[in-house]
Design a protein around this nucleic acid. Structure first.
Lengths: 162, 162
DNA sequence: GATATTGATTAATACCATGAACAAATCCAC
DNA sequence: GTGGATTTGTTCATGGTATTAATCAATATC
């Protein structure tokens, strides 16, 4: 690093502190931006955030159980019961009893639920594509690469917490 | 791009779709990681997330008002009243009447509040420094640069939504 | 067949957040 | 300076998010 730029680009410990603060700020802004987007989505599709998240779990899978939904959303089963209550009231999911196992309730999307899920998925894809399209091909690779490294580093630190 | 790697690195529209999905996934993982960290912090410092966020608003400033806190936290004033109620019960803030303007309540951190704020700030700095320290100097610059570009691109797209 | 386990629901509790209605203080215009 | 508008903060009703403990029915295990 060029020593003549010391006034603007700190060195040594000062540099690390500076970069740490910068990283903290940038991550905070990104997260904040994503949260705003989720609120926007929730309003645009007129669904509580939790129901939206639940809606997007049914990728190819025809049926899910309360337990599997709870695991994927990382919430308690009782929370899922509440969420499904709302979604059923909106006609997005239907519950049927498993003929093989009477304890299990099979949750599936209604046609309306599938339509909504597809619309939301398309919207999310659109958003992220628009972000990417602001960059040239090479820069896209760089950014994705950097993000991947960062994500891994963050998970490592998170594991260290536990 | 080398055509012989087409099986693993898609081209053209397929490449864009692939990168879009990748970006979406990575951003999602990062946000999720941050949210987990906030839950961890909340437990570690035995404070609700909203109170933690509020605690960190008092940087140098001696006094804040309910209104200014509401603006910074981007929540309704009535929410701030509730948050401060909790913080006061924990002995983190004190409210005094403004001698100049009887409508205004001046909110300030108690010594205990300042201690807590400092501890939380130190913890956050530590976390982000640990993330950075997993990279070499050059890579740190790259990642921060990429993150900055990405942040800006995300804000641009967000503005386009509105 | 008695007991343990599993899957789902219910109820109690707590946190996050908003909007409407309100009271008190201040501002401002005349 | 009095009267109306604005500003500041609180209270209240409501709704979304999420957990834990208790419970119940069905299944699995022995």
């Amino acid at each position: 690093m060029n020593k003549s730029t010391a006034e603007f680009a700190p060195e040594g410990v000062a540099l690390l502190d500076y970069q740490t603060q910068r990283l903290q700020g940038l991550i905070g802004e990104m997260v904040h931006c994503c949260q705003d987007r989720m609120i926007f989505q929730s309003q645009k599709f007129d669904l509580p955030q939790a129901e939206l998240r639940c809606l997007m779990l049914f990728g190819d899978e025809r049926y899910l159980t309360v337990k599997s939904i709870a695991q994927r959303l990382e919430v308690a089963k009782s929370r899922v019961t509440k969420i499904l209550e709302g979604m059923e009231a909106r006609g997005l999911v239907s519950r049927t009893d498993d003929p093989q196992d009477g304890r299990i309730r099979l949750i599936s999307l209604t046609p309306e639920g599938r339509r909504r899920a597809q619309a939301v998925g398309e919207f999310m894809r659109e958003i992220h594509q628009r972000i990417l399209l602001q960059f040239e091909g090479d820069q896209r690779l760089e950014i994705i690469g950097a993000l991947e490294s960062l994500r891994t580093a963050m998970e490592v630190v998170k594991q260290g917490l536990k």
